[in-house]
Design a binder for these strands. Structure first.
Length: 432
DNA sequence: TCTGGGGTCCTAGGACCC
DNA sequence: TCTGGGGTCCTAGGACCC
């Protein structure tokens, strides 16, 4: 074995596992985590999977049966997950070199030349994260990222743990032929259908395909996937700085509403709030936005579905909340259908540039935050998101949702757990 | 009644120029 | 005004990921 060895570490049922960290009584119970608005299932514990609950199912459709089966539901709590993710990533980076964070719950690392040494490091890493944080990992090693994904997928089916491509292949030479092509990293629904039409139905079929022919019929992306299945590293990840979530090209804040809204005033309030949220993240990563795009949409499950978007180019790139919110709200009058029932809106900031190095030719400066944004950022850090804001963004709700705004369109989160690691008023209480 | 939120990359095709 | 080809740049949309 020569060349690089990729290590893929990802958490088992990450969101569900996070919920258990501060609620040990949830261990071994069937548990699901729901998307915003308590819409769909986005994470299930192993026990919930065994009950036949799949990801993406609308909660309102399965709720009756699930509750009958003793399933516990939690609203998603991304503050908690992001915080646990950061700790988990730091522990892993201290064990193996070359960490590339790929998503909130998984990262690639580089293995050592000596496979035995790599294996020991993986074992140690898994124990450290389990004991230090309480999150179980699945760890796979392989000569390419795509094969590491295959191994990970395979051993998760066996209940998780640690696996290696060479070992697996020596035990089961035909393992790729027993994996559906749709399970391959980079092959989605559409490609699966097209490939099936060409009698490529398993990962093994795809691995045996001619890369240049695949490139012709599909794209360079799928060609790289074929090469990777053959053991030739061909996919590089962007060297984006994911540990603090920095985005190089665009940044978006969008939400489904708790209930449909109609008319300019409510829509403006929602879009203004999302614009502010987006500008907070923009300042946090030290960028300026050159373009603001807003989209609004009615329900795609209704017959009169409509979706519109509009953009504004900022003549001077900006990071201050007023400029961005004003630009965003300003797109609405020409887009809005006054009778439509909107269920979703979003604000995208594009044409991002680095605030520190930005200069214009004529000596004009960018629309920098004049201090208001920084004050808002500080207040929000201290008192919690949406404590303070411009316009509607500062309106608080009551009771359990007191951190959210009081507007009717604010999302539903009826099964929210405490944000124990990021909110002082939601600290875990230990009775001794 | 009730169906997530964020990203990335590639390609086709139009606009424009010579 | 018409005719033709080829190059570049940009954007919208499609496809994928978690």
């Amino acid at each position: 074995m020569s060349g690089r060895m990729f290590v893929l570490a990802d958490a088992d049922s990450f969101y569900a596992s996070c919920e258990r960290v501060f609620h040990p009584e949830l261990a071994r119970r069937p548990l699901v985590v729901l998307s915003n608005n308590d819409g769909c299932v986005v994470s299930r514990s192993r026990e919930a999977k065994l009950l036949g609950i799949s990801n993406g199912l609308p909660w309102f459709k399965i709720r009756g049966q699930a509750e009958h089966d003793g399933v516990i539901a939690r609203s998603s709590n991304y503050e908690l997950y992001a915080s646990l993710s950061r700790r988990m990533m730091r522990l892993m980076a201290a064990t193996l070199p070359g960490q590339e964070i790929y998503s909130i719950d998984e990262c690639f690392l580089r293995g050592f030349q000596d496979p035995q040494r790599t294996r020991m490091a993986c074992t140690r890493m898994r124990e450290t994260v389990l004991q230090g944080i309480g999150i179980p990992l699945t760890i796979a090693t392989a000569p390419t990222r795509t094969l590491a994904k295959i191994v990970s997928h395979y051993i998760k089916h066996q209940g998780g743990g640690i696996g290696d491509w060479d070992l697996l292949r020596s035990q089961e030479p035909d393992v790729l032929d027993r994996i559906d092509v749709s399970e391959v990293w980079g092959v989605g629904r559409r490609l699966t259908r097209k490939l099936q039409g060409m009698s490529i139905t398993t990962a093994g079929d795809l691995a045996r395909a001619d890369p240049s022919r695949i490139r012709h019929l599909f794209s360079v992306l799928l060609e790289r996937t074929v090469l990777e299945l053959q053991g030739i590293p061909s996919i590089e990840l962007d060297d984006f700085d994911a540990i603090d979530g920095t985005r190089k090209q665009q940044l978006m804040c969008s939400r489904m509403f708790g209930q449909p809204i109609t008319g300019l005033p409510d829509l403006s309030a929602a879009v203004g709030t999302y614009a502010q949220q987006a500008s907070i993240r923009l300042r946090k990563q030290g960028s300026l936005a050159g373009m603001v795009t807003v989209f609004i949409a009615t329900s795609p499950f209704n017959q009169d579905y409509q979706s519109r978007s509009g953009s504004i180019i900022l003549t001077d790139p900006a990071d201050d909340p007023l400029t961005i919110a004003r630009a965003a709200v300003g797109t609405l009058p020409r887009m809005i259908d006054p009778h439509a029932r909107y269920v979703r809106a979003g604000v995208m900031l594009g044409a991002l540039t680095d605030a520190a190095s930005y200069t214009t030719f004529d000596g004009m400066d960018a629309k920098r935050d004049n201090g208001l944004g920084t004050i808002l950022d500080q207040a929000n850090r201290k008192f919690g998101l949406q404590s303070v804001g411009i316009g509607w963004a500062g309106m608080k709700g009551k009771g359990r949702a007191r951190q959210e705004t009081g507007a009717t369109w604010n999302m539903k989160r009826q099964h929210l757990s405490n944000r124990s690691t990021t909110r002082w008023d939601e600290l875990c209480i230990v009775k001794a």
